[in-house]
Amino acid sequence: MLTASQKIELHKAYWQKNELPRPLIGYQIGSQLISENFTAAQKLLAEPREITPEMIVVEDYYEDYQRMYLDSLEIEQEAFWAAMPFPGIPWLEAILGCPIYSSEGSFWAKPCYDDINQVKIAFSPGNPWLQKLLEFVDRLVELAQNRYPIGQPILRGPVDLLGSLIGQEKLVYAFFDHPETVKKLAREAAEFYRDVVKLLRERIPSFYEGYSFGWYPLWAPDKCMIFQEDLMALGSPGIYRQFFYEGDRLLSKAFPYTTIHVHPNSFFIVDDLISIEDLNVIEINYDVGGPSIKEMVPMLRRILEKKHLILRGKMQEDDIEVIKKELPCRGIFLHIVVPEINRGRQINSFIDSLYK
């Protein structure tokens, strides 16, 4: 098994884009939708209802974190498993005033404004949803006892937040009917996102003189952040550049290390993302039903020319063979989702033999 010091050296080589014996590997064990891996959330999902902050008892989740941490030790990997506040809750939408509801298998945010011109992007330190999120971080720091790092849950980005606040259809109309308002709110949403993550990071101690992204268990030598623009799937390259590109530039320089999460249905923004100098990493989600790894190879190569890459999803042996054949062993982190420990061991043994 790799020691912690050996893992840190491999991560440093990743950031320096040195050639490695194999890509950095991290495993997520269980469902690809990580919130489904928390048994403590099931009682909130048992019936459709509105969820309030006091209904979330952080201590109820301790057994889930302990189980996931111990499971991670059963598979050899370069990653450090990271704990993060329960990722199933739409935290930012809740902080901005959206009522949160449970439904079968997930939580969702109900729009809280009827019109784009009514939207207010602001929060107070005493906001109960913000306080619950910060409490989650504080309790995880106590629980970890420096055994593993604490990171950031994936949070919805500026376009996602605006779509949640007024509804996706109304947002699409607002692009054309109220462009200046959307542009102003997009900037404010980016600033709000940055400020909330800063509050989280202020409470998270370093881990081997660095930090974990969290949702992706990639270690970085300094503070780091993940963001996304998933709802850009409803837009176009022109809409992205007009409304959200500048906000993503702001987010990209908010921390020394930043990464954006991208699905195949938003691939049209990747070239613009590559042009953002302060953005370090682009994460590509390998979606079920989306393009194959082989089909994505030209884009992955373009990313690696200028950025670091995280590739996340349910990868099989033939996918790994394509990666070995088509992509260099530098600047790549594979975050592989496996249903259980034994399957992770199988994949890891295959990778070891392939990269001999």
Rank of each mutant, 00 (worst) to 15 (best):
S164D: 04
A122D: 11
Y148N: 06
R147E: 08
K170I: 00
I150W: 11
L96C: 11
G157S: 03
K120F: 06
E93V: 01
A109P: 01
K120P: 01
L133C: 14
E169G: 04
I150R: 08
E76F: 00
M68H: 10
Y113E: 14
W81G: 00
L171V: 07
Y69D: 00
N117G: 08
E76I: 03
D60C: 04
E63Y: 12
E50S: 04
G105M: 08
S106Y: 10
L73E: 03
E74Y: 03
R147I: 05
L70C: 05
P153D: 03
A122Q: 12
G157N: 02
L162P: 00
D115P: 08
L133A: 09
P153W: 07
N117I: 04
T181F: 00
V159L: 12
L161Y: 05
E78V: 04
A122P: 00
D177E: 15
W108P: 00
A109E: 08
D114Y: 03
I166L: 14
F80H: 03
P128R: 06
A174K: 08
D114L: 05
Q168M: 15
D71E: 15
L162V: 09
S164K: 09
A79L: 05
F136G: 11
D64K: 11
D160Q: 08
S102Y: 01
L185T: 10
A122E: 13
A122I: 04
P128H: 15
G151S: 05
I100R: 09
N146P: 03
V182I: 13
P158K: 00
K110M: 06
R156P: 06
L185Y: 08
D138T: 09
F123W: 15
L162I: 11
A82Y: 02
M68Q: 15
S102F: 02
Q66C: 06
I166G: 01
L140P: 08
M84N: 01
F176E: 10
I100F: 04
L140Y: 14
E59R: 09
E78H: 15
Y62T: 13
K184R: 13
S103N: 08
Q131P: 00
S124A: 13
F80R: 05
I95M: 11
G105L: 04
L143F: 08
L73Y: 10
Y61E: 10
R139E: 15
A122Y: 11
V57L: 12
E59N: 12
A109F: 06
L162E: 07
L92E: 10
P125S: 09
Y69F: 14
C112L: 05
G126T: 09
F136K: 02
Y65R: 11
V57D: 05
F107L: 07
L130H: 02
A79E: 06
K183E: 03
L70T: 13
F80S: 07
I89D: 03
Y65H: 12
K170Q: 12
E63M: 09
P85W: 00
I89A: 06
Q168N: 13
L92A: 02
C98P: 01
Y101W: 14
A174Y: 01
M84G: 01
Y65M: 13
E169I: 04
